[in-house]
């Protein structure tokens, strides 16, 4: 039973992590119908920026709670800035051209960012300090769940709530929904589409950065490549839930997290990554609209 609980909570952790990344994918896809391949790299850059802040502040002898909060905030700021800039350079000039072009551009951007971090920093895995203290009340169950994981659950839940509020009740949220429905139409009725798109990238990227810092703390290391696999898996989760749908992204992430956790726990851990890919292929073939996605007929 303990083992089951451990796998369950481990799956929940994975799921929450995927959710933090998948939300950005789904938001961008919902607005401009582009798989933002570079999203995983935004997450990685968030983790790296966090690490840099942590290292500098630790050297200056700050208190660890202050460090982790500041690191997360600065990482979010920077990732948002990267997301914003990437959109302007690699995607905006391609609006209106073939989808294939934007997709290739996104792949190029992902490749560039990986190697940018690789060259500017290092190709080695760097240990990532875990600054979240182990809470006393968790001591008895410490072998099952750690405080970092609790923070990840809470962060994912808060982000979800905040996003729902943003989309449902704010002006910007309304504009986002309008652009997602019909870009040309919303332009006609006076929505500033460029701003909406930039805003979407900024929000999605900063959420990914939050995920990046928390996950790196949890796992305890980071390198330039961590964004790629995490990004692909989060994308799987987004598709599983129904791409373009935010509750879908969260649901898909949890389902993927749990299935992965139980699969590796009870069956085999050799094929962990294969499993995610097989999962992806199966969903796309049998239910391309995902769990919560509507299977629309493309308008002709």
């Amino acid at each position: 039973m303990d083992y089951f609980l451990e796998l369950f909570l481990g799956g929940l952790t994975r799921g929450s992590i995927y959710a933090l990344i998948a939300l950005g994918y789904t938001m961008v896809y919902g607005i401009i119908e582009l798989i933002n391949f570079a999203h995983g790299e935004i997450y990685m850059i968030g983790a790296f920026t966090g690490l840099i802040v942590i290292s500098v502040l630790t050297m200056l002898g700050w208190n660890s709670i202050a460090i982790i909060i500041l690191a997360a905030l600065i990482a979010m700021l920077y990732s948002a800035a990267y997301g914003f800039t990437i959109e302007k350079i690699a995607y905006k000039p391609l609006r209106g051209s073939q989808r294939l072009s934007a997709l290739i551009s996104a792949i190029g951007m992902s490749l560039f960012l990986q190697n940018y971090v690789l060259l500017a920093q290092t190709s080695n895995f760097l240990p990532y300090p875990n600054l979240i203290p182990t809470w006393d009340f968790l001591k008895p169950v410490g072998h099952i769940v750690r405080s970092t994981e609790i923070v990840i659950y809470i962060a994912a839940a808060l982000v979800m709530v905040a996003l729902t509020y943003l989309i449902k009740f704010t002006r910007m949220g309304k504009a986002m929904r309008a652009v997602a429905q019909d870009r040309d139409m919303s332009m006609l009725v006076g929505v500033d589409v460029n701003r909406v798109i930039s805003f979407t990238f900024i929000i999605g990227s900063s959420i990914a950065a939050l995920g990046g810092v928390l996950v790196a703390s949890h796992i305890g290391q980071v390198n330039f490549y961590v964004g790629f696999i995490a990004g692909i898996k989060a994308f799987v989760a987004a598709v599983l839930g129904g791409i373009g749908s935010m509750p879908g992204a969260v649901l898909g992430s949890l389902v993927l997290g749990w299935t992965e956790s139980f699969f590796t726990g009870y069956i085999s851990s050799d094929y962990e990554d294969v499993f995610a890919f097989v999962f992806l292929v199966l969903i796309l073939i049998f239910r391309p609209a995902g769990i919560l996605g509507r299977s629309d007929t493309d308008k002709v």
Binding site: I45, F48, T49, L51, I52, V53, S55, V56, I74, Y78, Y116, V117, A120, Q121, T122, L126, P127, Y128, P129
Partner: peptide
């Protein structure tokens, strides 16, 4: 941060 501050933990 990425270009200037090269960390080695």
């Amino acid at each position: 941060p990425i270009m200037v501050i090269k960390v080695n933990t």
